[in-house]
């Protein structure tokens, strides 16, 4: 039997969890018991963190023809934690062109994970005049 202490990252409350690994006579893990969580998502997080930890990745990609040279992006779902740097490599290799709409898929099904990289803001095409906008 072993107990791992974790801090739940599902929401800003940050519950302190204890996850106990339950093993059978053949030393195989059969289940996990999560304590200290204050909601269901905490239990799910505790077990996932022990078996297949995942993280959201947020970053930027290069963009052409907009008022800025980078546009923020995020993974459509949390990705396996060990793929974070691989994910960054893919993201770093991309250049897109304005206009972009928030939610646009930038990279589809990357690394074969069935997860997309999507734009997390809209960006208009830069017009010649970038003076004060009066609306």
């Amino acid at each position: 039997m072993s107990v791992t202490e974790l801090i739940c990252i599902t929401c800003p409350i940050g519950c302190h969890l204890e996850v106990e690994k339950v093993i059978n006579d053949d030393n195989e893990t059969v289940s996990y018991i999560v304590r200290g969580n204050t909601c269901k998502r905490g239990e799910k997080y505790g077990i996932e963190e022990m078996t297949a930890p995942t993280r959201m990745v947020t970053s930027t990609v290069k963009v052409d023809g907009a008022h800025l040279s980078r546009i923020p992006v995020k993974t459509s779902k949390p990705i396996p934690k060990e793929s974070i740097f691989e994910c960054m490599k893919v993201i770093n290799d991309v250049k897109i062109h304005a206009p972009v709409t928030c939610g646009d898929v930038i990279i589809e099904n990357f690394l074969g994970l069935d997860i997309n990289i999507i734009a997390s803001r809209s960006m208009k095409k830069r017009t010649k005049v970038t003076e004060t906008v009066n609306v």
Partner: peptide, 26 residues
């Protein structure tokens, strides 16, 4: 759970939708 720009964009869209006037670089 949104990113900062996504959170901002929801309000910016709403501002446009309601045709509220604004001045930038001001």
């Amino acid at each position: 759970e949104l990113t900062g720009p996504e959170y901002a964009e929801r309000f910016i869209m709403k501002l446009h939708e309601l045709s509220i006037a604004f001045k930038l670089d001001t």
